[in-house]
């Protein structure tokens, strides 16, 4: 058998994944803390005032990273879901469930900060605009995923049902992303584009990217913490848990 294949599947077993992840969490947690401090410093103190929106635009430093993460986490969930359905690995389902609450949190924060940005700039907390509505659907998809899994007692069946919901729902992510191009919306276009030079001041861009990296590191740390809880809860009766869990 091919050697690299053996090594990869070794970490697909919860018993060897658990201690590995335990060593990674402090690294990502520290990175998240440092990046958040740096990002907030650049975003709130160093970045210049916006010509049109005054200081109100500073919501961007949490709004855009939270929105990006909410979409990205759903894609990662769909990836694990597909892997779980294809290879029937237990860990894939655990990873999908571990990501969902964090994704829901970011979807909520995206809507919340968006409302607080919409009120002073558009004059409304909420409008039924394509971008806002599709993001609200993303939030409901996260809640639906969590509720569906909670409603099924057998964890393996819950994983399968959740995986299908994650895969079907992922179609919503490109709809959110391109909604500002496909429809006439109140929401402004993409803040950062691969094809165009950035239109905002360098320090604004830097602050936003630092905050995005901070949210990334936070998500990884929290999802790994949660997957460790899920592993313990599901494998409580197996022998390795008794030996290793307390570390």
């Amino acid at each position: 058998m091919n050697h690299s294949l053996v090594n990869w599947f070794k970490f697909a077993s919860p018993a060897s994944f658990y201690p590995l992840v335990g060593r990674l969490i402090p690294f990502f947690a520290t990175a998240a803390a440092i990046l958040t401090i740096a990002g907030l410093w650049v975003g709130l103190v160093v970045a210049p005032t916006d010509a049109q929106q005054g200081e109100g635009y500073r919501i961007i430093f949490v709004h855009v990273p939270a929105s990006w993460m909410s979409m990205f986490i759903y894609c990662v969930m769909a990836f694990w879901a597909a892997l779980g359905l294809a290879f029937n690995t237990r860990l894939s389902g655990m990873m999908t469930s571990a990501l969902a609450p964090t994704g829901a949190l970011f979807a909520f924060l995206s809507l919340w900060t968006g409302a607080l940005w919409g009120k002073p700039m558009w004059g409304a907390w909420w409008v039924w605009d394509a971008r806002l509505t599709s993001q609200l659907i993303l939030f409901f998809l996260y809640l639906g995923f969590i509720a569906l899994q909670a409603a099924i007692d057998d964890p393996r069946r819950a994983d399968k049902a959740g995986a299908i919901l994650a895969l079907v729902g992922v179609i919503n992510v490109p709809i959110i992303y391109f909604s500002v191009q496909w429809w006439n919306t109140l929401h402004q276009g993409a803040s950062v584009s691969m094809t165009k030079a950035p239109s905002m001041a360098h320090t604004m861009l830097l602050g936003m990217l630092l905050m995005a990296l901070a949210f990334w590191a936070y998500t990884i740390a929290v999802a790994l913490m949660r997957v460790r809880c899920i592993i313990l809860e599901r494998e409580l009766t197996s022998g390795w848990v008794k030996k290793n869990a307390m570390e």
Binding site: L40, E55, G56, V62, F108, L109, L116, K119, V222, M225
Partner: peptide
């Protein structure tokens, strides 16, 4: 610049949400 409620309301919600998530974990 007069946007205190909106800016701090956004950042505060993020801090609160993440804090609660870590605490619950």
């Amino acid at each position: 610049g007069g946007y205190a409620l909106y800016v701090w309301g956004s950042i505060g919600a993020c801090v609160l949400g993440m804090g609660i998530e870590i605490w619950m974990l």
